[in-house]
Simulated scan of single mutants.
Amino acid sequence: MLVLLPPSEGKASSGRGAPLKLESLSLPGLNESREAVLDALVELCAADEEKAREVLGLSEGLRGEVAKNVELRTAGARPAGEIYTGVLYDALDLASLDAAAKRRAGRSLLVFSGLWGAVRPTDRIPSYRCSMGVRLPGLGALGTHWRTPMASVLGEAAGNGLVLDLRSSAYAAAWKPKGEVARRTATVRVLHAPTRKVVSHFNKATKGRMVRGLLSAGVSPKSPAELVEALRELGYVVEAEAPAKAGQSWALDVLVDEIH
């Protein structure tokens, strides 16, 4: 099972350890594109703070994020699973998983990123600010920049098993499963059961708890249909829609009563 996650906007501070080693990151086929984004981002932030803030969509209160990006090559690095914070990652709570579940997380989770493309939770990265929706000078829209390298690398990473896609739309733009991979991909919406409306905050929390439940239970569904059964066994109310035609993914709706 391969689980695709969005990153968090907010991130923990960089560590005090060794700085980034690009060659040590998972999915080495992305390294050339990672280098290009890293160079463009550091150059932008070092040259003009105001322009960088505008390009990155940062408010006055987040001015310090620009300086953080300038130091990306020298700042200490931490496992990505510690860098990403926020509602989904608080609910997932990787640090409190038992050893077996942590190993499963290391094998199955991929966090998408405007800067790194995608990383595993064990990959050591510095804290940064650069969303997938950014258009960097010289590179353009990052969602477009990542499509070509992602197409070959992610197809291989998906292997022959289930792909559980929990990304937001901006990150989904960087790689869209196609063909045979699409048929074993499931995307998930979290809906308020009485109103059938998509929930926001609780959407992220539910997805985090859902992934945690799968990792903790040690289940590894091999298809979207098996995933539906596994989630129902974990107590979730799930409605599934199989793809109507080739090249489409399964669509799963997880129904919740709480919306806070």
Rank of each mutant, 00 (worst) to 15 (best):
Y236T: 01
M210K: 03
G213T: 09
V190E: 01
R232P: 06
A173W: 10
V163P: 03
R196W: 03
N203C: 02
V238L: 07
R167V: 08
V188C: 07
Y171I: 03
L214M: 07
L154T: 05
A173E: 15
A172E: 10
K197L: 13
K178D: 13
L164H: 03
S169R: 15
V190C: 00
Y171A: 04
A170L: 12
L227C: 08
K207D: 01
R189L: 13
P194V: 08
T187S: 12
A157R: 14
S216C: 12
D165V: 06
S216T: 15
V163A: 06
P221M: 08
D165M: 00
Y171S: 06
A182I: 02
S168H: 02
L215I: 09
P194S: 08
T187H: 04
S200I: 08
P221T: 11
H201Y: 13
K207N: 03
Y171D: 03
K178M: 13
P177E: 08
L191F: 11
V199M: 08
S169Q: 15
E180Q: 13
V153G: 03
K207E: 01
L227F: 10
A174Y: 08
H201W: 09
Y236N: 00
R184M: 12
L227R: 09
A157D: 02
A186K: 00
S169F: 02
N160R: 14
M210N: 09
A170H: 03
L166F: 00
L234W: 02
R209A: 10
